[in-house]
Write a protein that binds this DNA or RNA. Structure first.
Lengths: 362, 362
DNA sequence: TTGAAAGCGCTAACAG
DNA sequence: CTGTTAGCGCTTTCAA
């Protein structure tokens, strides 16, 4: 049992004294041969330990792998550590499941530039989840002669895409804060480029960001606040490479150091915001009384914490990406799915208190 | 760009006037040809839109897919909804990553018996995560001539395995409860067989359970409590098919209905326990004052809730499974990795109060 | 219903 | 350093 390379379709056919076609049909086209013969074939197969047609050989012949490849910026394992990514995966898995396809997670470390894994992947198409414009893995994916769907970023012409209107989404948040009276803010954002930079993100760096989504959000924030007279050049923006709550914590500290007078910290993700929230409270400041903190994504952890944030339908993004990829009818590519977002008014944003209030309490 | 089936290694070779070997070497053995020639090959490839060697054809030839398959009991998407499963996946992904292998999630619904996906999977081996003894998908996996590692269950001779000592683990919990003075308990457990059964699990059903892990835990509980004079036949045990907090909630209700006098509810998973915890508190009972509730697994949500539980190293299980599978040296199979567990004394278990105390408070 | 012929696209000896 | 020879194991017209 479980012997190596025991029998092939050909050897089975020989053993039975029938043609390979017949054996193949026994497995793939039951209606193409008599039930008795089929049974005989299958029985003999069992006896010989023939495990059925080799999937790789079959794939080569049929040009179908029955699997979807997923490429993401991060280490494979990261996908399971980030709540947003997990939900995206769930949605994608749902779509794959429906189509009877497997989901292949392609190992693509952001550090190591090992594109080989992309070349090795036996898949019928790729879903690319939120990678930078200049990602070499993405380039490798694009070379493969299979359909590709990109989620979130980058924003390539001629490629199917699913995402949200980041600019609009964060503007609803900006307006919310502006209406509350905030004019002096700080921004905590995610990685802006492939190179690690944990610190200030200059206006220059913001403009050159290779992560389209982050760039769009920063740009929209700048626009919205500029309109009410804020000089964006003066707004402290800090960037963190790792997407963790620890990053969120250190980022908020840096912001507060750069400008202790800020009344609100806008985070471009819930993870960063949750990290900031914990840190700030731990250091004795009250949220939202002393400081407003907002997030982006709408993950369940954020909801649980009462975070004021922007909710995007992450599960739907995954599902839509999978469907788009697996949809055989091709009604004019490139296609685009743009999902709706929604401002979630939690308990971490309030009007800034006047300086007197801050010093003297109520 | 992105044209269909544009060029093959052979056509490239013809175009260049060299042999296929040379082109192959250009990709796979850079040291086997002059840098100039290699460059010429690669340049021409780019010009012709040749995407590099076809991964499937290569796999067929080399008999390596560069991916490991994962089979689990549940729908693919479930894997991302269950915190324990997510952590397991993370560990497995870590191991795959290290080896540069992809991770293929094989769609295997517990309801639909579609084994085809297992046959289609182009992988170098399978990790099987916690499936019942009689799972048809498992049977299909076993037929494939590739290495297999089983995690948790079932407990097959001749197959590499990673798991914990379930019997010992839950006994530490049983002893803890017994020491606290509990003698009248109820048990909430997970699915015992492939068929859906949301309700009482008779002693008979417990004995016939096809999920080895659950069975081991129940058996060990029965032993431990029998030793102190408890008649296991009288202990209410309820089973839930879906592994959700909602199941945990309904299960605890059913237990309390069956025997309002129980002082502790032992759950065989943290998810069930957390569901029970919420439900019981919502209905006005205090935990642990009025009722003790315990879990199993040690997921972070449990820790956060202060659940008294048994922690098992889930991440390590995933990683160990991956390593075992990918470990090329084969020092005498079948091998087994047995991980340690640890009783976590949280705040949801305490000594049962006497009846008087219950009625009259302190 | 069954069989014969013709590759799918590639790599791995081995010989030059 | 380069080419020749032989398949990997299967499916699929097409004809019998």
């Amino acid at each position: 049992m479980n012997a190596r390379r025991p029998a092939t379709l050909a050897s089975l056919a020989a053993e039975l004294g029938v043609s390979r076609t017949t054996v193949s049909n026994a497995y793939n086209r039951p209606d193409q041969l008599s039930p008795e013969l089929r049974k005989r074939v299958l029985d003999t197969a069992r006896r010989l330990g023939y495990p059925g047609p080799d999937p790789v050989a079959r794939s080569l012949r049929t040009r179908k792998a029955g699997a979807v490849g997923l490429l993401l910026t991060e280490n494979l394992s990261y996908a399971f550590r980030d709540p947003g990514a997990v939900v995206f995966l769930e949605g994608l898995a749902l779509a794959c499941e429906d189509a009877g396809h497997g989901l292949l997670l392609v190992p693509a470390s952001p550090e190591r530039e090992d594109v080989a894994a992309v070349h090795r992947a036996g898949v019928d198409g790729f879903v690319v989840y939120s990678v930078p414009d200049d990602d070499p893995h993405l380039a490798a994916v694009m070379e493969r002669p299979v359909p590709v769907v990109i989620c979130d970023q980058p924003n390539l012409e001629s490629i199917d895409r699913v995402g949200i209107d980041d600019s609009h989404a964060i503007k609803t948040m900006a307006e919310h804060l502006i209406n509350l009276g905030h004019r002096r803010i700080g921004v905590s954002c995610m990685r802006l480029a492939r190179g690690r930079n944990d610190g200030i993100a200059s206006v220059q760096r913001q403009a050159n960001a290779s992560f389209h989504v982050q760039k769009a959000r920063l740009t929209a924030l700048a626009e919205a606040f500029s309109e009410v007279g804020v000089d964006w050049e003066q707004v402290p923006v800090v960037e963190r490479f790792d997407h963790t709550t620890a990053s969120g914590a250190s980022a908020v500290n840096q912001l507060l150091e750069m400008d202790p007078e800020i009344t609100a910290v806008v985070c471009t993700s819930d993870i960063l915001a949750l990290g900031a929230l914990d840190e700030v409270r731990e250091r004795g400041r009250r949220v939202p009384e002393d400081l407003t903190i907002t997030g982006f994504d709408g993950i369940v952890e954020a909801e649980r914490a009462g975070l004021t944030t922007v909710r995007q339908p992450i599960l739907e993004k995954g599902r839509a990406a999978g469907r788009l990829l697996l949809d055989t009818s091709e009604p004019g590519r490139p296609r685009e799915v743009r999902l709706e977002t929604q401002l979630v008014t939690g308990t971490t944003a309030a009007s800034p208190r006047s300086v007197e209030e801050r010093w003297f309490g109520f």
